[in-house]
Structures are given as structure tokens and as C-alpha cells.
Amino acid sequence: MTHQKITIPTAALILGAAGLIPFVWGALTYLNDTLALWGTEVLGPRFVGPYIQLFYGSVILSFMSGVLWGFATKADGRQATLCYALSVIPALWAFFMTGGGPTGAASNLISGFIGLLLLDYCFFKWGLTPPWWMQLRVFLTSVVILCLGIGVVM
């Protein structure tokens, strides 16, 4: 029995990695005051530290709800109903759970991204995603959680 290597499409990998930039940039500006000052002066205060991570994290959770909704279109009957219902959870989580200060919001986003990864896995196991989906999602989610975690502990 031979196993085929599953390759993430180049465009999906590049765009997914590019989507990490605001998380990584936010973490770097947490860790480096000089970089944070430069970013604040050049880009504005909304684009450094917790501000970029929290706003962008909410956007990405909402975007991923749309991705899951798209996967739900491949299901039928009760499974489709379940998938549509599950697909809105990340967006609702982002909407309701990202207030109350940067540390709490970042902690809640971490929980939201972990929950999203569990939903990704369910949709994957149900055969609704591309075969490379979990390989990409584990990588992206790991980086997101690491970057948000820096904001929680700083």
C-alpha cells in the first residue's frame, strides 16, 4: 500500500501564509518597542500590537465562517443543516467574545481559533474539504495561536 503525498496548492499556501502577516506583525510589535514606535508613526496606532491582531483575528474568524458555509453546500439533508449551523459559530464567536480588553479578547480569539480547527477537522472527516485542508489549517492555526499568545503573556 503506497501513500500519495498530499500537496497544498501553491496559491492556497501563499495566500494563507500572507494572511499571517498581521498576526506576526502584531506579535513583533509587542516584542520590540522600536518596531512598535515605527509602526505607530508610519502606519498608525491601529496597525500595531493588539489592535491589528484583535481586529484582524475577528475578520479572519468571520471569513472562515464563510469558508465553512461553502463546504456545507457539499452536504445533504440533516448533515447540511448541521454544517450550516456549525459554520456560523466562528463569526458569532468573534462578534460576541472580542470585547473587554486586549488580554481577554486575545484569549477568546485563541479559543475561537482552536474551536475553528475542531470544526475544520469535522468538515474534513465528513469529506467536505479538499484533502490538503487540515495540513494547511494546522499550520496556519498554530502560527495564529502563537502570535496571539504573545499578546496574552506580554
Rank of each mutant, 00 (worst) to 15 (best):
M1E: 13
T2E: 10
T2D: 15
H3K: 15
Q4S: 14
Q4R: 12
Q4D: 13
K5H: 06
K5W: 07
I6Y: 01
I6S: 06
I6C: 05
I6M: 05
P9R: 08
T10N: 09
I14A: 11
I14M: 01
L15K: 13
A18L: 08
A18F: 01
L20G: 05
I21G: 00
F23E: 03
W25A: 00
W25E: 05
G26V: 02
G26H: 04
T29I: 03
L31M: 04
N32P: 08
T34V: 15
T34Y: 14
T34N: 14
W38M: 12
G39V: 11
G39M: 02
T40K: 13
T40M: 12
E41K: 15
V42W: 00
F47W: 13
F47S: 07
G49R: 14
P50V: 12
Y51P: 15
I52P: 02
Q53Y: 06
F55P: 00
Y56E: 04
G57W: 08
G57D: 05
V59T: 01
L61K: 09
L61R: 07
F63M: 12
M64Q: 08
S65L: 06
S65W: 03
S65M: 08
S65Q: 05
V67R: 02
V67C: 03
V67K: 01
L68C: 07
W69K: 13
W69Y: 15
G70N: 03
G70M: 14
K74I: 02
K74H: 10
A75T: 06
R78W: 03
Q79V: 11
A80M: 10
T81K: 05
C83E: 07
C83Q: 10
Y84K: 08
A85Q: 11
L86G: 04
L86H: 01
L86D: 00
V88S: 02
V88I: 15
I89R: 06
P90D: 01
P90S: 09
A91C: 10
A91P: 04
A91N: 09
A91D: 11
L92Y: 07
L92M: 14
W93M: 07
A94E: 05
F95P: 08
F96S: 01
G99F: 08
P102A: 15
T103A: 09
A105R: 02
A105S: 14
A106S: 12
S107A: 13
N108R: 05
L109C: 07
I110M: 15
I110T: 00
S111A: 11
S111L: 14
G112Q: 13
G112L: 03
G115A: 14
G115Y: 12
L117W: 06
L119C: 11
Y121M: 14
F124S: 08
F124D: 00
F124P: 01
K125F: 07
W126G: 01
W126M: 03
G127C: 05
P130R: 03
P131R: 12
W132N: 10
W133F: 11
W133H: 10
Q135G: 02
Q135H: 11
R137K: 09
R137W: 05
V138K: 03
V138R: 14
V138T: 14
F139C: 09
F139S: 10
T141K: 08
V143Y: 09
V143R: 02
V144N: 00
I145C: 05
V153Y: 11
V153W: 14
M154Y: 06
